[in-house]
Nucleic acid binder design. Structure first.
Lengths: 243, 243
DNA sequence: CTGCGGTGTTGCAGAATTCGCAACGATGCA
DNA sequence: TGCATCGTTGCGAATTCTGCAACACCGCAG
């Protein structure tokens, strides 16, 4: 099924900051021939997954439809919202719910403490697993393998596999993950795992805020709040903590 | 590229009321062998486009990400312009695209059939919801409450809330709204709703013209053209009519 | 407990699809 | 005008996919 896989690889090439692509550009990037990419894009266009804008291609309406359907299908969001709102109110910070999407952590729901304008909405965006609190929680409690590459995003990002493994062990024993300027300078965060009825880790709840407000000294306490909220969500999904 | 096309056909099989699918079930539906469907689903799963839930498959997180990305790139005006131009050409009248703005209908895009001088451009102007075709379409298909005050703009304006409610019911069953001298004497119009990927009514498309040219007898036919054009725009936004 | 009907998955060999090349038309730039 | 780039398209070789059949698994009924 490598032909279908290549079509999906094309879709995967889209990202924030990559809203449209060219044929040769993609061909070089994915290691395919431009003729192949051209034909694949034509197929994707016929199905409405991409649309052409002159010589470039952007994501199409069918994806908007499927995306809306997918988000709704993540019953997670519905089960989590009330707990996240309470958590946001108690901490006064931004709360996010993330699931694993391949080698990235995808934010599927965000709740802000106050409805400040200018607070970036991370919904629909994906970030590196090893550099986010949510990602580390997903790695520590999920059964998925470590990412292949550990990119250095700030001086404090963990880029060594051994150190990451040790960190995940710490996360497991603490019950929550802490991230101090590992994704962005000046950004702190904590995150706790959410389990479904079968006991597997399906998501993570994070609280994040600027370093000057969400100080390091507060992180343990906020972490516990986070754990409580995540446990609340887990309970709504039918999870009962192991004896 | 029929292999890739089949993978996309699988995605296309998802719908409201079709949140998860089985292998054999899909195979029968798409006329493929279950072995083929099984392999395609495995490929889709590896890329995160679908996820398995026991023996069934649901849309996956990667689609939520791509969908959010796609929605951001799909603008109302961009999706609407081509359809509106065709509508203007076919009807020979002025076409407007309006969105709800509080208790008014705000025109965001206008296309004229011929470039007559002296045709007023309504772009950027807002009008009463209850006295315009676009406004009535937005009220009938949107989830917004009725305006507080129903000002009488002409002798034919609907100013009674009960009568307005009945009128909106008529609009819903017809699929389009008709306005005969309710906004201005000598002005006729029809309008149809536009839906986004989430299925909510986000805009309306209207055709308007002077009573002596856009006669009442023509309104039903023009209304149908309007509905078709609006459906076209909806499709470009990722809306698919309910099965 | 055994057989049946229902899942979904996987090896294999033949068959059909796809790939890469090269050439083409179009467009942009010097 | 010439050169570069872009994306598209025919064609034959070569890879990939299909469909079959067998398999493992589950629930259920006899």
């Amino acid at each position: 099924m490598q032909s279908a896989d290549k079509a999906l690889a094309i879709l995967g090439a889209f990202d924030e900051g990559r809203r449209d692509v060219g044929v040769s550009e993609l061909a070089g990037e994915l290691g395919l021939h431009k003729s192949t990419v051209s034909r694949l894009l034509a197929t994707l266009e016929r199905r409405g997954l991409v649309r052409r804008e002159g010589e470039r291609f952007a994501l199409g309406p069918e994806l908007a439809r499927l995306g809306a359907l997918a988000s709704r299908g993540l019953t997670l969001a519905g089960a989590a919202r009330p707990s996240l709102e309470r958590l946001a109110e108690r901490t006064g910070e931004t709360v996010n719910l993330a699931v694993r999407d391949g080698e990235r952590a995808l934010n599927v729901l965000q709740v802000d403490a106050a409805h400040f304008v200018g607070v970036t909405d991370w919904t629909g965006r994906a970030a590196a697993l090893h550099a986010t609190a949510n990602g580390k929680a997903l790695l520590a409690f999920g059964d998925a393998p470590l990412p292949g590459r550990l990119a250095r995003l700030t001086p404090r990002t963990i880029t060594d596999r051994g150190r990451l493994r040790a960190e995940l062990e710490r996360v497991r024993s603490a019950g929550f993950a802490v991230t101090v300027e590992e994704l962005e300078l000046g950004l702190h965060a904590v995150a706790a795992p959410v389990f479904d009825a079968l006991g597997s880790c399906v998501a993570a709840v994070s609280v994040s805020g600027p370093a000057y407000r969400l100080e390091e000294a507060r992180l343990p306490a906020v972490g516990e709040l986070c754990v409580a909220a995540a446990a609340d969500v887990s309970a709504r999904l039918g999870f009962r903590r192991a004896a």
